[in-house]
Computed example of a mutant assay.
Amino acid sequence: MQLTILDRAEQVADDVLSLVLRSTDGPLAPWEPGAHIDLVLPNWLHRSYSLCGDPADQECYRVAVRHEPLSRGGSEYVHLFLRPGRKLEISLPRNNFRFVPAPGYLFVAGGIGITPILPMLRAAVEAQADVTLVYVGKTASSMPFADELRSAYGDRVRIVATDEQARPDFAALAADLDPGTLIYCCGPASMLAAAEAAFPTARLHTERFRPTKKSFGPDTSFEVTCVRSGQTIHVPEDESLLDALNHSGHRVPSGCREGVCGSCELTVLDGEPEHRDDIGAQTGRMFACVSRARSPRLVVDL
């Protein structure tokens, strides 16, 4: 964890605050475009937010938070109670949405999905790649950083407010792609579904803020052995692995609790996990908030 202080909070669109977090002791951990951090809020909630500032700036991180109408307490606290001067613990940056070198990029962002795209766009322009951003929102006033984007990138940016303009035609965009162009897309589920239908799978990179709907068999109980402590914990069918570990004294970090942020990643030493996340756990890893076990027992590095 790193300790920061909230340096500035600025409204950058309807119901969106930009937060600038400053280091309290030396440089912050380095990060790459696509990375996110967990904020440990004073109401004890952990929430994940994409870094949307400049990776070269190791004194400050910038994130943006939309006030969700059905907030589970995170965005509501940020908007109503969090004020500059407050010290906040944050996680080290993690990256599930890696920026891959390419001769050209099409960036597609919807609403708050612009946040991980911003540093990617900067990096692509600095690398002198061929770059286009299509940024979609319900209204012009709901789209954070739109003015910043127009000022910095001019006609490389196409901003579409759907209350005034037609939604972009992804099939037409796909037809105009050069062979080496990669597509990066972040936004609501409907946008991601349209992107997956239109763009070549091998060149499309997406990040989700909400999990996709998936079907699994009935939850069953299993055992998990924590190799460092020597403790074996029973995980009943009606409890997540994350909750069982936390209730037994193993404080596993967590953010989304939906299998999209990666903060609860565990190393699996033995047994077969049943992966239910949207990230794509690497071999020997699993995400404790949603994933379970296919085998009667798992051994994890805790």
Rank of each mutant, 00 (worst) to 15 (best):
Q2V: 14
T4K: 01
I5Y: 06
R8M: 05
A9R: 10
A9I: 12
Q11V: 11
D14I: 02
R22P: 01
A29K: 10
D38C: 11
L41K: 09
P42Q: 10
S50G: 05
L51M: 11
C52T: 07
A56R: 13
D57K: 09
Q58L: 15
C60N: 14
Y61I: 05
A64Q: 04
R66M: 09
S71W: 12
Y77E: 05
H79F: 12
L80R: 15
K87M: 14
L88G: 08
I90Y: 03
L92C: 10
L92M: 14
N96W: 01
R98S: 14
P103Y: 04
G104P: 04
V108Y: 00
V108N: 00
A109N: 08
G110P: 03
L118M: 06
M120K: 05
V134F: 08
V134E: 02
Y135C: 03
V136A: 01
G137T: 04
G137H: 02
G137A: 15
K138T: 13
K138Y: 10
S141R: 15
S142W: 12
M143G: 01
F145K: 06
F145L: 10
L149K: 02
R150A: 12
R150W: 05
S151E: 14
R156F: 00
V157H: 01
R158P: 04
I159C: 07
V160P: 01
Q165F: 03
P168G: 05
D169W: 07
F170K: 00
A174L: 11
A175E: 15
D176V: 04
D178N: 12
L182F: 05
A189V: 10
L192E: 01
A195F: 09
A195N: 06
E196M: 15
E196S: 14
A198N: 08
A198P: 02
R208G: 03
K213Y: 08
P218L: 13
P218M: 07
T220V: 05
S221D: 14
T225Y: 03
T225A: 07
G230Y: 12
Q231T: 15
P236G: 14
S240H: 06
D243I: 11
A244D: 04
G255W: 00
C256R: 00
R257I: 08
E258Y: 07
C261S: 06
C261R: 02
E265K: 15
T267E: 09
V268W: 05
P273V: 06
P273A: 09
E274F: 09
R276A: 11
A281V: 09
R285P: 04
S291R: 06
R292S: 04
R297I: 10
L298Y: 11
D301F: 13
